[in-house]
Simulated assay, not measured.
Amino acid sequence: LQTLTLFTLAGELHSYSEVCEALSTLEVALGFLSMTGGDAHMQLSYYLEKDLQMGDQIAPHVLKALSMCCLQHCVALWQLLSSLKSENMLRLRRDPFVDVSEKYKEPLSEEQKRLLTGFFSKSSADAFLLEMHEFLLLVLKKPKALDTFKPNWLKITLVSYIESKDMNVSPDVEELFPEEICLSHYVEAWKFIIASKQERGQ
């Protein structure tokens, strides 16, 4: 899914409730697609309205936003919407990561904040942030995450995760992401970068 489309779609969903509705609608679609499959090039809104007969249950504004994507974009769209939900929760002073172990929530030092700010100012990191968030939700939220992922190397762990999905890791991440940031800082690192972006109005 192209970055421009992602930003446009994100801009269409103005509130936490709209993001939640879009995400829950998408998760229904993903559930059906996992069982029945579908035409990768079919417009998502068409699939929701015609195949799933859900048109009347979805707010027109949300349906319009989802119409920007085809079925082949559903996983990337889930990644975006789930992150937007967490970002909106932060704005509302709610914790999106209640279920994540405290071992991954150590506070950042001022030096670590400076290093993170430097990294994200030099690199196009939106895709990396989405991967960070997905890893948080799908992996670190699991009750037994600590058995596998010790709170040490963040970069190595996340790079391995991205590569396991047959995706390329940005050279910026390989070269510039600060080694000083550990998995123990994972949640606070993600929150810090999102808060910084929100302050800059990005």
Rank of each mutant, 00 (worst) to 15 (best):
S67W: 04
F97A: 10
L48I: 08
V98S: 09
Y47L: 03
E27H: 12
H61Q: 15
L44K: 04
Q43R: 13
D56T: 11
L30I: 15
S67H: 08
D51M: 07
C69M: 12
S34D: 15
A125I: 01
A65I: 03
R93I: 03
A125Q: 02
S15Q: 09
L63C: 07
S124E: 03
Q79V: 07
L80F: 06
V62P: 03
S24G: 06
Q112C: 08
D39S: 08
L33N: 03
A40E: 14
M54S: 08
L63V: 05
H133C: 04
K50N: 10
P107I: 10
S34W: 14
A40V: 10
L81N: 11
M42S: 06
Q79W: 10
V100P: 12
L23A: 12
M54Q: 14
Q79A: 11
E131K: 10
Q79K: 15
L81W: 03
S86N: 14
Y16M: 13
F119H: 02
F32N: 05
L30Q: 15
C70I: 07
L84S: 13
T117E: 09
R91E: 14
Y104D: 09
E27W: 08
L130G: 12
S24M: 08
D95M: 08
D95I: 11
K105P: 10
L116R: 02
W78P: 02
D126F: 12
S45H: 06
L115S: 10
D99H: 12
S101L: 11
A65Q: 06
F120R: 01
S67F: 04
Y16T: 13
F119G: 01
A29W: 03
L66N: 06
V75A: 12
R114D: 05
F128M: 05
R91P: 04
H73G: 07
L71R: 05
Y104E: 09
E111T: 06
F97Y: 15
S109M: 02
Q43W: 00
S15E: 11
G37V: 02
L33P: 03
T25F: 09
Y16F: 15
K113D: 04
G38T: 02
D126Y: 08
H133S: 09
M42G: 00
L130C: 08
G55L: 09
P60T: 05
F128I: 02
S34L: 13
S123D: 00
F97L: 14
L115T: 05
E111S: 07
E110V: 09
S82P: 02
S82M: 01
L84H: 10
K105R: 15
Q43Y: 01
S15Y: 09
D51W: 01
A65R: 07
Y47A: 02
K85F: 06
Y104I: 04
A59E: 13
G55F: 09
K50I: 05
Q57T: 11
F32Q: 06
L63G: 06
